[in-house]
């Protein structure tokens, strides 16, 4: 059953014209993550490089393609976690880096801290020799158009999310049985400057523990935070629930208790995986035992050889 990698491209409603590129991006990323794992790479390498690839893909709301805040600027959040040691690294509201997920990993590897935010995260990036990229290089025409549309009248930032969320994330188990998760996002469209969502928040935007499994979520960030979605799913798994049962229970609870929709990708130490969502859609893909699985609507599970 090992290795396995599962990726998501954000829970929400994917407009028709973007469905195909979203699915293509998922399949490409899962294949790449799987190749890393097959060649003996670690779960941590696989999730980080998979998410970096999705950050570089303008079809998703992370890295290039991020949504814009109220002022029309890009501020990004990212998290990585290593299930062996529970080591984690996060950045919040970071600007002008191409791959926030790489920066999050550096926070984990090179500092005694877990999270660096805003200008401090940028200072750290400079100290690590990560090039500062022009803000324009992160902004797509699509992101700018949606930002402008949503500036109109009483556009409600929560409702506007229904357009497309597009946070990206990955979970993986490597052949050694080590587990990792990574999540990266541009956040919610037309958010206030400095708004931090669930993504960089340990236990909310992701969690990984070799003894239980790993989760990377997406959806309405504030709702995910209120119920600490990732840790909640793993609590259910500790009580004997399967990744699928645990995800469905936690997503149903989130809908009931705080009226929030979202989705998750989950793995357990044996390699059992799940991609579940309460939103209309969530593009996802999984690679295991030479098979690539993918889908976007409820009930879909297409397969093809890797």
């Amino acid at each position: 059953m090992l290795p396995v990698v599962v990726v998501h491209g954000g829970a929400g409603h994917v407009p028709k014209e973007r469905a195909e590129i979203s699915i293509a991006g998922m399949r490409e990323a899962a294949r790449m993550g799987y190749a890393i794992l097959k060649s003996g790479g670690s779960a941590m390498d696989a999730v980080v490089e998979t998410v970096a690839m999705l950050e570089n893909n303008p079809a998703f709301n992370a890295g290039r393609g991020s949504v814009l805040n109220l002022k029309g600027e890009v501020e990004m959040d990212a998290l990585v976690m290593d299930g062996r040691t529970l080591a984690c690294g996060a950045v919040s509201a970071v600007r002008r880096v191409a791959n926030p997920i790489h920066l999050a990993r550096l926070v984990m590897d090179k500092t005694s801290h877990v999270c660096l935010t805003a200008e401090g995260a940028s200072q750290f990036a400079r100290a690590m020799g990560i090039p500062e990229v022009p803000e324009e290089s992160l902004i797509t025409e699509y992101a700018r158009k949606r930002w402008k549309d949503n500036l109109h009248k009483d556009a409600n930032p929560v409702e506007c999310q229904i357009g497309k969320m597009g946070t990206v994330g990955a979970v993986a188990v490597d052949v050694q049985g080590n587990i990792a998760c990574a999540t990266s996002t541009g956040g919610m469209i037309n958010k206030m400057e400095g708004r931090v969502g669930d993504t960089p928040c340990i236990g909310c935007g992701g969690y990984a523990d070799n003894q239980i499994g790993a989760v990377s979520p997406t959806g309405h960030g504030e709702a995910i935070m209120k119920i600490a979605l990732s840790r909640l799913i793993l609590f259910h798994m500790e009580q004997g629930k399967s990744p699928k049962e645990a995800s469905d229970m936690a997503l149903a609870y989130m809908k009931e208790r705080v009226s929030g929709l979202g989705g998750v990708v989950v793995v357990d130490p044996k390699g059992t995986w799940a991609a579940r969502f309460s939103s209309q859609q969530m593009p996802w893909a999984a690679a295991q035992q030479e098979q690539l699985h993918y889908g976007m609507f409820h009930g879909e599970d297409f397969t093809e050889p890797v």
Binding site: A93, M192, G194, R195, G197
Partner: peptide, 15 residues
Amino acid sequence: KTEHIMLTGRGANLF
């Protein structure tokens, strides 16, 4: 007063 849960850095000061 906001629809968010967390504000950071300069954004928190601006708020």
